[in-house]
Design a protein around this nucleic acid. Structure first.
Lengths: 229, 229
DNA sequence: ACAAAAGTGTTTGTTGTACACCCATGC
DNA sequence: GCATGGGTGTACAACAAACACTTTTGT
């Protein structure tokens, strides 16, 4: 049995770099491989593309199967095709990056029998295949894109304080921002709306909550607005 | 004979959107298909990935075979994987975009027995497969990227006048720029160098020639410089 | 009352934008 | 000498950056 083709074909996979943010760090979701090659080693979640399946579908399917995540922000990153990136044979992988908010997808760890865990971005173990390279490309992309597309909100809960928003940017861009200038700028964009709610359970003055208004953003984009931090 | 695998695999191809610039327009290089499906129709140059070959290598190989182009600027664009994008079977394609300067790669037309020709960006014929979609994505990428990476120089000859440079940006961004402000900005970047040469064969005052200094650009990037038009 | 973070404006420097005329050359 | 594009500077507006204190709440 099997499938026969006139010419040899590389295998095709999808891999995902899943970023999450908690109070301390930007984190990445990894799974521990149970099969050779690299059994026992940490790797990006991912798997083989089925014929008839769009690769983004593969990516979402594998994410769900391996980590329990669904309905996340997912975007294609780059396709890696070096013939020796997998020791078995030529495997081409289409890499994606995903953004999830850790407080709502808490420690999705151990699912499936496989071991899954979040690692701080600057405390990543050795990874299988060329996954370190893929992760690096993904992080660079995130750093770049977050400045001119409002994707950072995907890392936060639906309702957030301006301090959380600022902290998110500081974590990812890896530099400090001025509080007053930041607030002035983000509020002037008029794409996040002030809610009549404040945070709870904090041991100091509670901050006002805000929400990203995608409709308003889309409308402004149509009229030439450019998000830029 | 043939190659047999345990699980079915999609076929893998590379396709290239080649942009070129002449005095009038931004152009795209297309080839006329000689085989089914879509025989006789215009399409992006491209072809099947060989096992053991990085996909960028496939893209360059196909470009050379089908259009005679080599040593061009080439960058990965996106991977298209909708199962029905090829009527024969599931074919996943990794799309690239290339930038060449038309004055040095003039009418690379008819090579190979295949028919190749340049088409103005807003006068593209119906294309095979989903190539119109790929072209659209490539054009959007070019428009976006040209504003924050110095890739536009790839579309010009080595030595160019400031007017040519400006015209290139105007053609691609599809809007007019102010001559004085443009010159001020681009010269202040100190990444193009003034040559002791002027253009020839023009029926008016000859303009000074300039050249992009990649070394200077790279050095400035290392110190935090950001190209932005 | 104290600790912790929220919230708030002004000044100064830098960058972007709008705008019009003289100059050099080929025909 | 005329047509064609080359080359140049200034004034004003908008935006970015730097900076410190008062307010609110929980313990």
């Amino acid at each position: 049995m099997g499938f026969t083709y006139k010419y040899a074909r590389p295998a095709l996979t999808a891999d995902c770099v899943v970023f999450g943010l908690d109070e301390e760090d930007l984190k990445v979701l990894l799974i521990q491989r149970d099969l050779e090659p690299f059994a026992g080693m940490w790797a990006l979640p991912g798997g083989f593309v089925a014929v008839g399946e769009a690769i983004e579908t593969t990516a979402r399917r594998e994410l769900l199967e391996e980590t329990g995540l669904k309905n996340v922000f997912l975007e294609q990153l780059h396709t890696f095709s070096e013939p020796d990136r997998d020791p078995r044979e030529h495997v081409v992988t289409v890499a994606f990056y995903a953004l999830v908010n850790l407080s709502e997808h808490k420690v999705q760890a151990a699912t499936d029998a496989r071991n899954a865990a979040w690692f701080a971005i600057d405390d990543i173990p050795k990874l299988a295949f060329d996954h370190e390279k893929i992760l690096k490309v993904a992080y660079e992309r995130l750093k770049g894109k977050i400045r001119y597309r409002p994707i950072g909100f995907e890392l936060l809960p639906d309702k957030f304080t301006l301090s959380h928003l600022q902290l998110m940017y500081e974590k990812i861009l890896d530099r400090e921002l001025d509080k007053r200038n930041f607030r002035k700028k983000i509020l002037n964009m008029e794409i996040i709306e002030e809610l009549n709610e404040i945070e709870t359970d904090v041991a100091h003055r509670a901050a006002r909550l805000y929400r990203f208004n995608k409709k308003k953003y889309d409308a402004k984009v149509k009229e030439g607005f450019d998000f830029e931090l």
